[in-house]
Design a protein around this nucleic acid. Structure first.
Length: 504
RNA sequence: UCCUCGAUAGCUCAGCCGGUUAGAGCGAGCGGCUGUUAACCGCUAGGUCGUUGGUUCGAGUCCAACUCGGGGAGCCA
C-alpha cells in the first residue's frame, strides 16, 4: 500500500514500505515519519503493543533507514494526511549510515553536492511533483489542440542564432555543437505538419552565475504555420493558463508544503497585459504609471523599506544577543534566541543584497537607453508592477534574432514577443513571428555574419511555399521556478548543470 | 571576462581595536522522559581556522596572490 492511499484504508491493517525521514523518541514509544515517494506518514511504535523485540528494532533505526511497517491505520486530524499508522511489526531492509542532511538548514553548495539525497526532502519532493504537472500539462495543452510533438536534433553543425556560446563536441572528427534551440527544425516541421512543438534539452555554454541560468535546460518550442504574432500570444497565454490551472488543481498540497502563496497564480489566470517595447520603456523609465504605481518611486520606497527593515533586524539581533548574555537565562530560552538570531542573520544577508541591488536598478531604469534590450534588472523593474505575466512585443530589430519578421507598420521593429513573469522572475518565454521574405532573411544572415551555406536548407522553407508563421520558446525550469517561487532555477531540475557544477 | 560578498567542528554560524586554553546550536554517541510534530532535558566525543607567502614579539583576526563558492553585469529561456 502507498501512503497516498492510506486515508481510504482507515481502521484496516496494512503494510507500507519506505524510508525513515524523521524519528522522535520517548520512553516506551517511538514516532517514525515514513516517506514512500507518494507522501509522508507518522507511524507510532509503542512498546506495550508490539513487544520488546520489535520496539528495540524501531528504536535503533537511523534517519533514512529503509523499512516495511505493518499496522493499523488510525484517523488523527492532527497528522498530515489525516491518518497515522499504529505499527504492530517493523521489518528492516537496511539501517542507514549517518545521514548527511539534517533537519536544520544547510548551505547551497553542500546541498548541491548532495543533490542525490537532497531530492528526498519534502520541499524538493513537492517541487519535483509540480515540475511533473507542468510538463504533463504542457503536453496536454498542445496535444488537445492538435499539435504534433517532434524531436529536434541535439547535435548541430552550426550555431543556430550565432549569439551565445555553444558546447563543442566531436562528431566523427568534425566539430559539432550541442543544440541551443530546435526552432529552425521546428519551422521545417511546421511547414510539413502545420502546428508542432518540441520538448527537449538545450545547451548554453555561458559562464553565467545567476539564479536564472543553467547550462543544460529543457525548452518547449511550438511553431505554427499561418499564425501571426497576436495569435502566437494567444497560444502562449492559453498554454500558461493551462499549466497554472493544472498545478493549482493537482498540487494544492505541494504548493502549501513549499509555502507558495497561490494568489498570484490565481490572478495569472486572467488575460496577460500586452504592450509594445515603446510602452514598456516608458514604464521602466517612470514616464508612465501602471495602475497609479510608478516604477522609480516604488523602487525608492522599496529601498527605504529594506533599509528600515535592515536596521530593525540589526537591532533585534543585538537585543537578543544581550538577552543571551544576561544571567539567569534558561537553556531552552537561549536556544530559542540563538535560532532566531540565525534566521535574522540570514534575512540580513538578503536585505544587504537588496540594498546593493536596488540602487543599481533605479539607476539603470532611469538611464535606460531607448533601443537597448532589457537587462535582468529592467525586467524586474517592469514586472514588479504587475501580478500577471506581461507580454512585450515589437522590439528594435537590432537587438533580436535574425529570423524575426519586421513590423509592417514600423520597419525598425521586429515582431518578437517576450513574456516576463511577475515577482522578478524575468523572461520565461521568447518568441515571435518569423520573417517570410527570402531576401530580407539573406540580408539579416549576412548582417549577423552567419555562414550562409549552413542556412540554405532553412532558406528553402522560404523558397517553397513560404507562409506567415510564428512560434516561441518556453524555458521549463524558469516556468517551474516562478510557479514554485523558488530562489534559484537549480531547485527546479533534478540534477542541474551549470557553470562549475557537473556532479552529482 | 568584469564588479561584489564569502571560506572557522559532519552541518549552520559567532569570534569586537591583532593578545594567553577556539565558541554556540544542530547532527552523532550515551543516559533520562509513555503522544511527539525541526520534541524536550543532561553528559561525551569532535578543529592543520580554504592554500601559499608577507607584516608583527605575537595572526582565525591585518596585507598580497591563488583556489573554490554565493550574488550581480554581459548573454539569455
Amino acid at each position: 500500500m502507498y501512503i497516498k492511499d492510506l486515508a481510504a484504508a482507515a481502521e484496516q491493517t496494512t503494510t507500507i514500505k519506505g524510508w525513515v525521514t524523521n524519528k522522535r523518541e520517548s520512553k516506551g514509544i517511538v514516532f517514525l515519519v515514513l516517506r514512500d515517494g507518494t507522501g509522508f506518514c507518522q507511524c507510532v511504535v509503542a512498546q506495550d503493543t508490539c513487544g520488546e523485540e520489535v520496539f528495540e528494532r524501531a528504536r535503533s533505526l537511523s534517519m533514512e533507514s529503509s523499512v516495511a511497517l505493518t499496522g493499523m491505520v488510525v484517523r488523527d486530524e492532527k497528522q498530515m494526511g489525516g491518518v497515522e499508522l499504529q505499527a504492530s511489526n517493523v521489518e528492516v531492509f537496511q539501517v542507514a549510515e549517518e545521514y548527511p542532511i539534517s533537519k536544520k538548514e544547510h548551505g547551497v553548495d553542500f546541498l548541491m553536492d548532495h543533490r542525490h539525497l537532497w531530492l528526498r526532502s519534502s520541499r524538493q519532493w513537492a517541487i519535483m511533483r509540480i515540475r511533473n504537472t507542468v510538463i504533463y500539462s504542457i503536453h496536454k495543452y498542445f496535444q488537445e489542440q492538435g499539435f504534433l510533438q517532434m524531436d529536434a536534433p541535439i547535435f548541430t553543425g552550426n550555431a543556430c542564432e550565432g549569439t551565445s556560446n555553444l558546447f563543442e563536441t566531436d562528431f566523427y572528427g568534425d566539430p559539432a555543437y550541442l543544440s541551443q534551440s530546435g526552432q529552425l527544425y521546428g519551422e521545417a516541421m511546421a511547414m510539413a505538419f502545420g502546428r508542432i512543438y518540441t520538448f527537449g534539452p538545450t545547451f548554453r555554454a555561458e559562464k553565467s552565475k545567476t539564479r536564472r541560468h543553467l547550462s543544460e535546460f529543457w525548452m518547449i518550442e511550438p511553431e505554427m504555420a499561418f499564425y501571426d504574432i497576436f495569435q502566437n500570444m494567444d497560444v502562449i497565454e492559453g498554454m500558461l493558463h493551462t499549466v497554472i490551472r493544472e498545478v493549482l488543481h493537482t498540487n494544492r498540497h505541494e504548493l502549501e508544503m513549499i509555502g507558495r502563496d497561490t494568489a498570484i497564480l490565481e490572478s495569472s489566470l486572467k488575460q496577460f497585459p500586452r504592450m509594445t517595447y515603446d510602452e514598456a520603456v516608458r514604464i521602466i523609465r517612470g514616464e508612465q504609471d501602471v495602475n497609479g504605481v510608478n516604477s522609480i518611486t516604488s523602487l525608492r520606497e522599496a529601498l527605504t523599506e529594506a533599509q528600515e527593515r535592515h536596521d530593525a533586524v540589526l537591532n533585534d539581533i543585538e537585543t537578543r544577543e544581550a538577552k543571551i548574555a544576561s544571567p539567569g537565562m534558561k537553556k531552552g530560552e537561549i536556544g530559542f534566541h540563538q535560532n532566531k538570531i540565525q534566521e535574522l542573520r540570514n534575512e540580513l544577508r538578503d536585505l544587504e543584497e537588496d540594498l546593493r541591488n536596488i540602487p543599481q536598478w533605479i539607476e539603470s531604469a532611469e538611464n535606460f537607453r531607448y533601443g537597448n534590450d532589457f537587462g535582468g534588472s529592467d525586467e524586474t523593474v517592469l514586472t514588479r508592477l504587475f501580478d500577471v505575466p506581461v507580454m512585450v512585443y515589437d522590439w528594435p530589430h537590432e537587438v533580436k534574432a535574425f529570423y524575426l519578421k519586421r513590423s509592417a507598420q514600423d520597419s525598425s521593429k521586429a515582431r518578437g514577443v517576450d513574456v516576463l513573469a511577475p515577482e522578478g522572475y524575468g523572461e520565461i518565454v521568447g518568441g515571435g513571428e518569423r520573417e517570410t521574405d527570402l531576401h530580407l532573411l539573406q540580408e539579416k544572415i549576412r548582417e549577423h555574419q552567419l555562414p550562409m551555406e549552413a542556412f540554405e536548407w532553412y532558406l528553402d522553407l522560404r523558397r517553397f511555399g513560404s507562409v506567415p508563421h510564428s512560434g516561441f520558446g518556453l524555458g521549463l525550469e524558469r516556468l517551474v521556478t516562478w510557479v514554485c517561487k523558488l530562489k534559484h532555477v537549480r531547485e527546479s531540475i533534478p540534477f542541474g548543470r551549470m557553470y562549475g557544477r557537473l556532479l552529482p
